Amino acid sequence: MATHSSNTIIKFADDTTVIGLITDGDETVYREEVRALTTWCQDNNLHLNVSKTKELIVDYRKRQREAHTPITIDGTPVERVSSFRFLGVNISEDLTWTHHTRYISKTARQQLFFLRRLRKFNMDSRILCNFYRCTIESILTDCITAWYGSCTALNRKTLQRVVKTAQHITRTELPSMEDLYTQRCRKKAGRILKDPHHPSNNLFCLLPSGRRYRSIRTKTTRLRDSFIPQAIRLLNS
């Protein structure tokens, strides 16, 4: 568990991610958290693979950034990267999704080869559509509620071109990326509303009328386009 309130530790299987909020350039607490994690692993006979450990810094300060001293684990400096893959999603240091959309569109296009092969073998359109949904649409929509709302128009066109190519191959109308995003947002919001123990459940507050949800005030485009505000707008529409 995190030892400081400004830090968060996210664990999934054998992957551990430490998130630190650094204020006024003071990294003391963040570095202490990394040292505490390292010590805990040593005490519990767990080996940290430093070569696979990466550090990503998100910094929107307008003034000139000072040189950042790398985090070290057992005397070995941790590599700083501009993006890294977290549970299938490519997160960039500027929190844009161009790198991620390029990656998944390239991966999805590689699967179009097999879709064309099935078409060449005169497979039924129902089989082609099932194959598309299992192997291509699943790639395009993985964690879509987390990133699609903040994509640029160019990013969305890149993804939609993959869908149009699949439509041409299957000769069937396929749901657009926008429709898939809306559908997944509504579905995820519905699950959160049904689970009173979900961390985000209290963010969906009904107005006194009982028919609409209270909108979340957003000062930045990044927050406005994120999942919770988008889901509330969809539920109110």
Results as ranks from 00 to 15, higher is better:
2 A>E: 15
11 K>Y: 11
16 T>S: 12
22 I>W: 03
27 E>L: 08
28 T>A: 14
29 V>W: 04
30 Y>E: 05
37 L>K: 03
41 C>R: 01
42 Q>L: 01
44 N>P: 04
45 N>R: 10
46 L>A: 05
47 H>W: 00
50 V>S: 04
50 V>P: 00
57 I>V: 15
59 D>C: 09
59 D>F: 05
60 Y>D: 05
63 R>S: 11
63 R>L: 04
64 Q>R: 13
65 R>F: 01
68 H>P: 00
81 V>H: 13
87 L>G: 02
100 H>F: 09
102 R>E: 10
104 I>Y: 11
108 A>F: 00
110 Q>F: 10
111 Q>M: 11
114 F>E: 07
124 D>A: 12
127 I>K: 04
128 L>I: 10
135 T>S: 14
138 S>K: 12
145 T>S: 14
146 A>L: 14
149 G>E: 00
150 S>Q: 15
152 T>I: 09
156 R>S: 09
158 T>I: 09
162 V>E: 01
166 A>L: 01
167 Q>W: 00
168 H>C: 07
172 T>S: 13
173 E>P: 01
183 Q>K: 14
185 C>R: 01
190 G>R: 07
201 N>E: 01
204 F>S: 12
207 L>D: 12
210 G>D: 07
212 R>D: 13
212 R>H: 15
214 R>N: 13
215 S>D: 06
219 K>D: 12
224 R>F: 08
228 I>W: 03
234 L>D: 05
236 N>D: 13
